[in-house]
């Protein structure tokens, strides 16, 4: 989903920065507040960030015959919400932009918008809706992480299509072409990401569910049920 360095002309790279910076600023504010109030969440924050590190480094082959990587933002989005996920996303995207020539500094705003903001927002909303509908916790996590990952790649396609509309067909034709590259390739990877995210949540529930209850991610009764089933 990385828009490569220099591949967004003016005014588009500025536009995505303008949208992303307030969210990142709000995320930093929220993160500081949360860490100051509840120091015990710090390890979980590190785990959520580390999960993004691992998953976004794995370039996996897809059914389309090309490779792409999952985003790993589902964990952070579900536990800490989209704003803090955006901050964690920035860290990973900076690492990749500086050391790997993946993405770039001018396209950082666009990449943060797709991976750090839209993906987590979708994951968060799917999670909240699914839990309200009383679906199985792991199924909801799976759906949230899968759709969040996929939404990230759809967003990248939109960003590129806006910057590079087709000369005859305009935005729609162009979006179709980028979506074929990104969104289609991503379908199996998104499913795998959802599955692995659900697995990570199983381990977090088993060892440190009290923090999740405290952050109102899950209710006590859900934890008891899950532990009852899995022990």
């Amino acid at each position: 989903m990385h828009v490569m360095e220099g591949f967004l002309p003016t005014p588009w790279w500025q536009v995505w920065f303008a949208i992303s910076i307030p969210v990142i600023a709000f995320g930093i504010y929220k993160m500081n507040k949360l860490v100051n109030e509840k120091r015990e969440i710090l390890p979980l924050l590190a785990v959520a960030g580390a999960f993004i590190f691992v998953l976004s480094s794995l370039k996996l082959p897809s059914v389309t015959g090309s490779c792409s990587h999952p985003t790993g933002t589902g964990v952070a989005a579900i536990i800490f919400g989209p704003a803090i996920s955006a901050v964690l996303g920035v860290i990973v995207l900076l690492y990749q932009a500086l050391f790997l020539a993946h993405g770039g500094l001018t396209t950082l705003g666009a990449n943060v918008f797709s991976m750090g903001i839209v993906g987590p927002v979708v994951a968060y909303l799917v999670y909240k809706t699914g839990m309200k509908a009383n679906l199985n916790f792991y199924l909801v996590v799976f759906l949230a992480a899968t759709l969040g990952d996929w939404a990230t790649y759809v967003t990248t396609s939109v960003e590129l299509a806006l910057a590079f509309p087709d000369p005859t067909g305009g935005f729609v034709t162009s979006f179709g072409r980028f979506a074929t590259v990104f969104a289609l390739t991503q379908v199996p990877l998104a499913i795998m990401e959802g599955a692995v995210t659900a697995l990570l949540f199983k381990y977090v529930i088993n060892v440190k569910s009290d923090v999740l209850v405290e952050l109102k991610v899950v209710e006590e009764s859900v934890v008891r049920k899950l532990r009852g089933l899995s022990s």
Binding site: E5, P9, C67, H102, G104, V181, F182
Partner: peptide, 26 residues
């Protein structure tokens, strides 16, 4: 099994007829 990011670069090239010059280099 090339990278999707690189394939997108190819699409950009086709859409712009190879006229697009990246505004920055890594």
């Amino acid at each position: 099994y090339g990278g999707a990011d690189g394939e997108a670069e190819g699409v950009i090239e086709e859409l712009t007829g190879g006229t697009y010059v990246p505004i920055a280099e890594p």
